[in-house]
Design a protein around this nucleic acid. Structure first.
Lengths: 351, 351
DNA sequence: TTGTATGCGTTATCAT
DNA sequence: ATGATAACGCATACAA
C-alpha cells in the first residue's frame, strides 16, 4: 500500500494537520519542520490520495469530455486541444466517446457525479434536454457545436459562414451548377454547412435544384458513392462542394477511377481542412476549421465558469472559419508549389 | 447540491445502510422497502458520489491512459479501442496525451494516485524506469509498443515482421534498390520497422547501403522532404518503403509536383494502413496495424490484472501485422476497382 | 430484515 | 506554530 498522510506525520513526529499544511503551502509553519516533513514525504514517496482529497475539497480537478462517434483527425485534434489546455491549468481529462446509444449516454451522465468538476459536451446529434435532466444542477457545462444551446455556455464554429464563402468562391470562378454532398441530416454542423451552400446558391440566383444535394454520412465511402450520382446528372455539375474532407477524399478516389480530372473536368472543394488535404492529388481546397482551438476555448470557458467568473461573459461564441484555396477548385495552378507548402508548414507549427 | 445517501435514507425512513444495500444489490432487504427506496432515490435524482465511493471501495473504476505526442488517425483509433472496451466493462477513461517533457510526465504519474485503478502506457520513446519509480507499487500497468518491458505486462505490434514482409514483397516485384524513410530514431516502432527492412535487404543480398536510409519524423513534411534526397541518388532507387503512411503521403505529394509517376517511375509503400490509404492517388500499399485492437487488448489485459487473474498468462503479446497491397507498389493495376473497394469496406465495417 | 457504528485519507476548524 | 478532531459521502462488520 502507498503511504498515507498519517505515515508521513508519524515519521516526521508531527500531526497530520501540519503535514497537510506543508504540502498545500497553507498556514504558517516553521521552516525546519517544513523541510523535515518534505524530506519524509519524499522518502516515503507520499502522494495525496485523489479521491480522499476531492471528497473534502469538493473538487476533482478533472474535466469530463463527452463525445459522439467521432473519427479521424477531428477527434484527435479536439482532444489534443482540450488535453493541453486542461493540463496547463492542472486539470485531468476524463473522456468518453463513441456515443450513439441514447440510453447508454444517460447512464454515463449520471455516473460522473463526483468525478468531474465540469463537462464539455460535443453533441451535434442529440438535443440538450437530456443533459439538463441527467446532470447535477450545479455542474458547469460547455457545449460544442450543438444545435440548441440556450441553457448552457456554448462554442461553435462558423459552419454557415464557411460554406457560404466557399460556395461563393466557386460561383466567382464561374460555376453555375454546383453539387453539394451533405453530411448526416441529424448533425448540426452538417445542416449549417448545407444552409450556407443554399444561401449562396439562392442569392446568386443559380440554377439550383434539390437534385444537386446528395446525401452523405461524413465518411469516405459516402463520397465515393456520391460520385456516381453526380456523374449521372444532366447537365453535369461543373463543381462539387463536399460537406467534409473525408467525403471529398472518397470523391477524389472515385473520380480518378473514372478518369474524371479534377479540377479540369469538375472542380472540388471540401470542409475541415484536415492536415492531409494539401497533400492530396490535387491538393484540396477546403474550409479550415480551428478544431484544436475549439477544444482550447472550451477549456478556457470552463475554467472561467469554475472560478465563477462567468457572470458577465457572453454565453455564446462562434469561431471563424477560413477559406483555404488550393488546386482542386481550379483557382490555382494544378500543382502546388513547394514554396506554398513550406509557408503553410510554418503557420502550422506556430500554432 | 446533489442529494446524498442520507437524504434518500431520511425520505425513505430507513438507515443509510439499507439504502446502500439496495443500491448495490447486496444483502437481504424486503421487497417493499426496496421499491420504496428506489422510488425515493429516483425522485431525488440520487447518484452515488464517485470520490466517496472509491475512497471506501479502493476502486475508482477508471483506467488511466498515458500517451506521447500522437497525431491523427493513430491516436483516435487507439483511444476508440480503449474507450469502447473500457466502457463495456464499466470503466471510465482518464487520458493524458502529448507528453514530450519528461518532468511533466513524472508529475502526472504521481498525480494519479487514487484516480485510476490501472494505467495503460504508450511510450515508444521513453524508458520504463521512470514509470517504476514514480508509480505506486501495486498499480497494474500495461505497456503498449514499448522498448524495454520486462517489468510490466506489454502488448506490441509486429512492426519487424510487417516491415520484413513488405520489403520482401518489393524485392519479389524485382526491386533491387529500395530506399527506406525512417521514423524518429528514439521511437521503438520506428526502429523495429527499420530492423525489418534491413533484415530483408540483408538476406536478399541486395545492394544495400546506409545512404538508402533516409531520416524522418513520422510527419507528412518529413516525407515531402525525403523525396529530394531520393531523387538525387544515383542510381536512383526503384522503390521507396516509408516507415509510416503519413510520410508516404508527403512523398506522394512531392513526387506529383516533380512529375514522378508512382508506381511507374518509383514504387511506394507505407506502414499503418490508415483509413485514407486506399483513397490516395494511387492507392497506397501499406502494412496494416490493428490499432483499435491494440487498445482493446490492452484493456482486456488490464481487466484481467485487476481481477488478479494474471497469475499464469503470458506477459508479452505481439499482434500480427498484415500486408495490404494496392497500386502504389506496382503489383496491381494502376487504378483500383470499385469491387475491391467495396470488399474492403465490408471488412472494415465488420470490425 | 434492518440499524449502529466505524473507517477510507484528506482538509478545515477550532483550540492551544 | 502546532495539534486534536470534525467533517466529506459512502460501504460494511456487527449488533439487534
Amino acid at each position: 500500500m502507498s503511504a498515507t498522510i498519517r505515515d508521513v506525520a508519524r515519521d516526521a513526529s508531527v500531526s497530520v494537520a501540519t503535514v497537510s499544511r506543508v504540502l498545500n503551502g497553507k498556514g504558517p509553519v516553521r521552516e525546519t519542520t517544513r523541510r523535515r516533513i518534505l524530506r519524509v514525504a519524499q522518502r516515503l514517496r507520499y502522494v495525496p490520495h485523489g479521491a480522499a482529497r476531492s471528497l473534502i475539497t469538493r473538487k476533482t480537478s478533472t474535466l469530463g469530455v463527452l463525445l459522439p462517434d467521432l473519427y479521424g483527425e477531428f477527434f484527435s485534434e479536439l482532444i489534443r486541444g482540450i488535453d493541453v489546455a486542461a493540463r496547463r491549468a492542472g486539470y485531468h481529462v476524463l473522456v468518453s466517446g463513441s456515443h450513439s446509444d441514447r440510453k447508454e449516454t444517460e447512464e454515463l451522465l449520471r455516473a460522473i457525479r463526483g468525478r468531474v468538476d465540469g463537462l464539455i459536451v460535443l453533441s451535434p446529434t442529440f438535443g440538450v434536454h437530456q443533459l439538463r435532466s441527467n446532470l447535477p444542477e450545479e455542474l458547469p457545462v460547455v457545449l460544442l457545436n450543438s444545435a440548441d444551446d440556450d441553457a448552457f455556455e456554448s462554442i461553435r464554429v462558423d459552419n454557415y459562414g464557411g460554406a457560404l464563402a466557399m460556395t461563393r468562391h466557386l460561383i466567382a470562378l464561374g460555376h453555375r451548377r454546383i453539387a453539394f454532398v451533405r453530411g448526416p441530416s441529424d448533425n448540426h454542423d452538417a445542416e449549417e454547412r448545407l444552409r450556407g451552400y443554399r444561401e449562396a446558391s439562392r442569392s446568386a440566383a443559380l440554377g439550383w435544384s434539390a437534385a444537386l444535394e446528395i446525401p452523405g454520412t461524413f465518411r469516405e465511402e459516402a463520397g465515393y458513392r456520391a460520385s456516381a450520382r453526380i456523374l449521372r446528372m444532366r447537365p453535369r455539375p461543373t463543381a462539387v462542394f463536399v460537406a467534409n474532407d473525408a467525403m471529398a477524399i472518397g470523391l477524389l478516389c472515385a473520380f480518378r477511377e473514372r478518369r474524371i480530372r479534377v479540377p479540369e473536368d469538375v472542380a472540388l472543394a471540401g470542409f475541415d481542412d484536415i492536415p492531409i488535404a494539401r497533400f492530396l492529388t490535387p491538393p484540396l481546397s477546403s474550409v479550415r476549421v480551428p478544431i484544436a482551438e475549439l477544444g482550447t476555448r472550451a477549456v478556457r470557458r470552463m475554467l472561467r465558469a469554475l472560478r465563477k467568473e462567468n457572470g458577465h461573459v457572453s454565453r455564446h461564441e462562434t469561431l471563424p472559419t477560413t477559406l483555404v484555396i488550393r488546386a482542386s477548385c481550379g483557382a490555382t495552378p494544378r500543382d502546388g508549389r513547394a514554396e506554398a507548402f513550406l509557408a503553410e508548414e510554418g503557420r502550422r507549427n506556430a500554432l
